[in-house]
């Protein structure tokens, strides 16, 4: 208690006996932790960059997982594989449109790079989904898919006749 009082006293009492060599107490209102804070801010920024790289690389990291899901779901056309392919296709596209928001905090030197990586990762996912669609036969990539639109040939010659009546 006394020590506390002591310190409180020493806060406002000026001791002129102290030699000049001794450390001069900081001025009133001076917060020495401010210096420490500055270094921490630098460290945080690095962290944020790291974090946003994580975010940017997220889609790329999903690829092995997606590959596994694709492999597991097979090429048959039924409700679950269709739903999966749908999700695989829609999610990256959605994510791409929200890129502005996610990379707002990563504005800085590496912001554009991250954005490019993020979009590329999403595009890779879209590509994977499209490949899946293709292997499931959902893409009109074959001639047979356009067969219904093939117009019949116009005939140039007309004929008549048959077994002779005479």
């Amino acid at each position: 208690m006394s020590a506390k009082q002591n310190s409180r006293k020493s806060k406002w009492a000026l001791d002129f006996n102290v030699s000049k060599n001794a450390d001069i107490p900081s001025p009133a209102g001076y917060n020495p932790t401010a210096l420490v804070n500055q270094t921490e801010i630098v460290r945080d920024q690095r962290l944020v960059i790291k974090k946003s790289w994580d975010l940017a690389l997220g889609p790329l990291k999903q690829i092995p997982m997606n590959l596994f899901i694709m492999y597991m779901s097979g090429n048959s056309i039924s409700i679950f594989p269709i739903m999966m392919v749908g999700m695989m296709l829609i999610r990256p596209i959605k994510a791409m449109f929200t890129t502005q928001v996610t990379s707002k905090m990563a504005e800085g030197a590496q912001g554009t790079g991250q954005r490019i990586v993020y979009i590329l990762g999403n595009l890779a996912n879209v590509g994977l989904a499209l490949y899946k669609c293709h292997s499931m036969g959902l893409l009109p990539t074959h001639a047979s898919d356009w067969l219904a639109f093939v117009e019949p040939q116009t005939r140039l010659e007309y004929y008549g006749g048959g077994i002779s009546f005479i």
Binding site: E157, Y158, Y159, G160, G161, G162, I163, S164
Partner: peptide, 10 residues
């Protein structure tokens, strides 16, 4: 004009 005809003689 331009029609074709054929007959088959049995």
């Amino acid at each position: 004009d331009g029609m074709y005809l054929y007959t088959a003689d049995v």
